[in-house]
Design a protein around this nucleic acid. Structure first.
Lengths: 354, 354
DNA sequence: CTGAAAGCGCTTACAG
DNA sequence: CTGAAAGCGCTTACAG
């Protein structure tokens, strides 16, 4: 696609098309939009020279916030995977107010090879623009139900929630609470459903009041736990929904004078680096964040080389990692089990350093 | 700088220079090297079109490892600052084995506006190449003594080490240990020197055996603390050198059955997000990592616009943030002080969320 | 191994 | 508001 080809197709001069591309004001509004439409449809990109790109190719990672170690782990994985393929990772944060409209132009102007979106909810327009420009993109942990033609990468959140809760059930807990994440997050809902399924399977009554809503941050976990701990029939175990929320639960327990795991068992979700180093070390569900990013990079490359851009959906397996934050409830002893033993579904080897 | 200008200066045709740039084989070795020399000296970059770059400009952040939240905070700050200026941040990790030689070519080929190096130690060659290509660069927390013409951004590490240690002295501690970082890190050495200065000022004997070497990771802090705790005359307070090392100290204390701060006071350095959320919350020295990154971005832009590229050296102020991990030693009570009060040098307001 | 010439993709001052 | 024409920075097939 060259400017000349577009000009010919639309019956205009090369000069006029060039003006539209460069945002000059002296073009009739109608002409401009007709040209723009063609540009988008053909996925036109400025050819800096006859030969194909000499510069290092770039893929973009677009995230809403860098606050959480969750995003950090994904970015780290993406950098590692991309670098292995000779690609550079460019970062775009949606935190800054009005960037929501701008990132798209920036990315497309840079001649990106593909876009990885974290937790994002694409508008219909953005989706079709990405498609029409032939720009490969993948969503990691989509915010809402992804459209039918959107590739995404996630983890087995439901199975993870199930494993976490079953672990608590197996230890003998009956009053097990959960602190969920944002309601619109697919992965958050799946974890809670896993929790529900585990309780139902165990024949434990599912009290709605034991399901608390958080936001996946430490503060969210802290506040959720405070509410739960204040209840007269306070739970003996909390599935915290995320590692950050688990840290908040630790904090609330600490303040209330409750010892973990003696007075309160806590399970996280993610297995961030902190999980191993909190005191006590956190029992959690490991999500292979770096691998998820690597898979996303691979999808981008495959699609870039002509693979089918639609319907690539991957969920990577989660594993329960048992550390020190879970134990049998105090009043009802259950068969002893070493606190650092790794149980189902998978046995995880824990390297000493991190 | 255009191909034509170079050709004229060296007395060759435009075609020949073009061939060198594109790595064609049909050029005499001597001709090639003469041209290459000029290219480097003039910092030639392919102009993709008559008008200056239409695509979103990029700055590069090059780091050794993304493991530590320290690097993450800097990257986050750089993304925020860069985006405010309409720039995109590209990430290059030096973790991957042989990338050390490659990153340089990648970066320069991409037409970067500037490079931010974290903790890096540039070789003399790299330094002069960056200079000769007119590529602005800044080092954040340089590994060794930076050369005389290298811009860098850091924090007042010495003052921070001093404030941390004086805080412990003020609480009544006499046996204060320190866990340092890697010996070749300027910032690490400055922190330990600040510690020494505080003890000397207080007239406390400086036992060399209380100075332990770490590596700024959780494991380093854990091992250092284990060694210190095992001593017959174990210290009543540890200045952990970094927040991550402080978490390791917490862990070691927890395992040894020591309570923080009752049995052992701990001070960190960095004020990473975890510091507020550990149990107990960590007293630490705040380093303004995001601002450091913002300053680095600003330097890059100023130099890019013709500012003097040399001798820009900035050290931003650190602040002691007192939380719950420090208290007077058990045996020797000292004047009471609220554990969450913020003391010298600066009073810090602590927002509730994070 | 070198370079004159043709050509490509693009932009812009300017005439209409 | 449009486009013919000049021009820019670059590459490449080809003659020497």
């Amino acid at each position: 696609m060259t400017i000349a080809a577009i000009a010919k197709e639309i019956g205009l001069s090369v000069a006029t098309v060039s003006k539209v591309l460069n945002g000059r004001p002296d073009v009739a509004a109608e002409t401009r939009s007709r040209v723009q439409e063609l540009i988008v449809r053909h996925g036109y990109r400025r050819r800096s020279s006859p030969s194909s790109e000499t510069s290092t190719p770039v893929i973009d990672v677009v995230f809403e916030t860098f606050d959480s170690p969750w995003a950090v782990e994904i970015v780290r994985g993406a950098v590692a995977a991309a670098q292995g393929e000779g690609l550079t990772v460019a970062l775009t944060s949606l935190e800054e107010g009005d960037e929501r409209r701008i990132w798209f132009d920036h990315i497309t102007s840079r001649g990106t090879r593909g876009v990885i979106l974290l937790l994002s909810q694409l508008t219909e327009t953005q989706r079709s623009e990405l498609h029409s420009r032939r720009l490969p993109f993948v969503v990691i942990d989509p915010r809402g139900e992804p459209g039918p033609h959107v590739s995404y990468v996630g983890a087995t959140n439901w199975a993870g929630g199930l494993a976490a809760t079953r672990h608590l059930v197996d230890l003998g807990h009956k009053k097990i609470a959960v602190i969920g994440g944002p309601a619109d997050l697919l992965c958050s809902r799946a974890r809670i459903d896993g929790y529900r399924a585990a309780l139902e399977t165990a024949g434990i009554f599912l009290a709605d009041s034991l399901v608390v809503r958080g936001d996946f941050t430490v503060v969210g976990g802290y506040e959720g736990a405070r509410a739960l701990i204040a209840r007269p029939d306070r739970p003996t175990a909390i599935f915290a929904g995320s590692d950050l929320q688990a840290l908040g639960v630790f904090k609330a327990a600490h303040e209330a004078g409750l010892k973990v795991p003696e007075d309160l068992s806590v399970v996280g979700f993610d297995d961030l680096p902190i999980a191993r180093w909190s005191s006590p070390a956190l029992t959690t569900v490991r999500q292979p964040l770096a691998e998820m990013a690597a898979v996303a990079v691979r999808i981008l490359l495959e699609v870039g080389e002509g693979g089918d851009p639609t319907d690539r959906r991957v969920e990577l397996a989660t594993d329960l990692v048992v550390r020190e934050s879970t134990a049998a409830p105090r009043c009802r002893p259950s068969p002893g089990r070493s606190a650092t033993e790794v149980v189902s579904p998978t046995r995880i080897a824990e390297p000493a350093s991190g």
